[in-house]
Amino acid sequence: MNKYCHAFLVGLQSNLVYRWNFAVRGFFSLFHLAVVFILWGAAYSGTREIGGFSFGQTLTYFLVMLVMQFFVGAFNEDYQISEEIRNGLINQFLLKPINYFLYRFSIFVAARLVTGILILLPLMVAVPLLRDYLTLPHDLWRIPLGITAMAFSALIQFSIAYCFGLLTFWFLEIQGFVILSMAVESILGGQMFPLDLLPAWAYRLAQFLPFYYQTYFPAAIFTGRIHDLGAVWQGLGIQLGWVVVLLALNQFLWARGLRRHTAVGG
């Protein structure tokens, strides 16, 4: 355990050093939020409610999702893992009693801790400006259950990124796969629009896919887009199921990938 603690601490330091990456990402997010604000503001100009939610509630949903992603989103973990496999850096882990998944996960947690805390700074500036638009439900149960869903969501997001990283054992370039999956995730994770706006059958279908639990599910708990407690418990059950499946897939790909690995460089 101690060794992963060190990996975590190194991760913390390196993320504090590369603040520039965070600034760039924060800057893009701000503009993305402006697009969301303008588009949905215009969509609400002719109607008071969309899918039973006001403009304020929809804007809150997008803001919560954006902030949450800084805490749990896998950002470039897939590329980092891919890079380490390609230039042979993983060889050192094969020779030492270190689990590569746990090592990478420790760094991921450290990175999200840094970006999560850093995003609170611009958020403190933005919230007073947007105060009139923000509406969150007051049920207390939403906080612990939402945070649990966020933790599972972090595991799911990291596992998916890890899987894509491991694809490097088979393919030279993973960028195409990553960007392809980003398109699917942005729709089915509810980043383009709240998933409850989908036709009922499509929404039901989405609930059985892992993408739903990547971003939409925790955001929907916090912002009241999922009303009843029963649905939340059921969702957490399916989410946990996906965590287990994806962790197993990670182990499987790692074991199969290593058989092909030729340990060049290092």
Partner: peptide, 16 residues
Amino acid sequence: VNLLMISVIYEHTNSI
């Protein structure tokens, strides 16, 4: 993704 987003929004409103 972009086209889908537009069509979903228009399921709920007539004008942007």
